[in-house]
Simulated assay, not measured.
Amino acid sequence: MRFNPKRLAPFLPLVVAAGLMPPAYAQTDTYPDRPITVVVGYPPGGSTDLTGRAVADQLSKKLGVPVVVENVGGAGGAIGAHKVSRAAPDGYTLLLGANNEIAINRLISASVKYSYKDFTPVGLVASTPMVLVASTQSGIKTVDQFVGTVKSRPGKYMYGSSGVGTALHLAAEMAKQQAGLFMSHIPYRGVGPLTTDLYGGTVDFGVYVLSSGLSHIRSGKVVALGVTEKKRSAVAPEIAPLADHPALSNLDISVWFALMAPPNLPEAITTRLRKALAEVLQTPDFRKKMEDAGSTVAPLNVDMGKFLVEETAKYQKIVDFANIKE
């Protein structure tokens, strides 16, 4: 039988309408109607994972669907972040990331093929300060001693962090830049090896996330010199900010966590997620969990566009000063 185009005429309006319909993932009127995945770019157990699980638990209650955490570790969080930056913009794949994978990694590694611009920001979740510590064998007990001693003997002292280009590495380099110090960086594969060398005096100073360092500080195994945020932490108010010292008055850097979605997320879904996250941030159970972990819950309605631009510019200055490249 020959094809007769006239037979299609009654159906042409339907064909045209189907062609104009947006892809299935762009339908927003029923969102969400199935489980949501929150990708965390690190193995279970760390501060990013803890924050991600706390957010997922509360988001599930606010959105009425299961919200599950998927740990996609590797490359300092970049593998998980890259996965989300390439995911369908349907609101069912999200990233709970820290400043490392969202804003820093791209500045130090040409192999990272995404930037913070490759996400739709949902919102800032929380932040936690870092803390500069000294080995008890160094004999240094105050920030003033630290600045004076290191400055008087350039190149003699070493500090450790959890790796090249991490927020902890950048915090120490920011202190070096502001106070005019010269000391060598020793990257470690985690808190455990760094702690061992601090205890033994192999390395003079170290930078911890505050929650990771508190047990060592309070046991007297290392000496806390100061936190890296300008304000005192509610979990350890006895530790003064490094910025209280005149040579470090502009030092203000933290580890922060944000909820991000793939680019081009429909506005209706973005609005739904932002509303749900705002409700999460005000939930007493969530706030207590964050505070117990040494984190401060983010204020509502942070302008994430402005925040990410300013944070990335701050990190770029440190990276350029320290010539950090991988």
Rank of each mutant, 00 (worst) to 15 (best):
V122D: 01
L96A: 13
G46P: 00
P121S: 03
S152H: 02
M158I: 11
F119K: 01
G148K: 15
S161G: 13
P129A: 09
T120L: 07
I79T: 12
R86T: 14
S127H: 09
L132M: 09
V67N: 09
D144H: 08
A56H: 12
Y159I: 07
T149P: 03
V112A: 11
G45L: 08
Q145Y: 09
A75I: 09
D144G: 06
Y159M: 11
G73T: 05
K141S: 15
Q58L: 13
V55K: 06
G155V: 05
G45S: 09
T142G: 10
S161R: 09
Y92R: 12
V72F: 07
G45P: 08
V55A: 09
T128E: 14
N105E: 13
V67D: 01
G74A: 12
E70Q: 14
A103H: 11
G45V: 11
S47F: 05
L96N: 12
H82S: 15
G91N: 13
D118Q: 06
S135L: 06
L95W: 03
G46I: 01
F146G: 03
K151R: 15
V125A: 06
V125C: 07
G91H: 05
G91I: 00
S127Y: 10
V131E: 04
K117Q: 15
K117A: 11
G52A: 09
H82T: 12
V143R: 01
V131N: 09
L94H: 01
T136W: 06
T51V: 15
G91L: 01
G123E: 02
R153A: 15
I108T: 05
V112W: 10
A87K: 09
L63H: 08
D57F: 06
S138G: 10
A78C: 12
L94F: 11
A75N: 15
Q145R: 06
I104T: 02
V112P: 02
F119V: 07
L124R: 00
T51R: 09
Q137S: 14
S138P: 04
L94Y: 11
S152E: 10
D118E: 12
M158F: 13
V65D: 01
A81C: 05
A126F: 06
T128M: 13
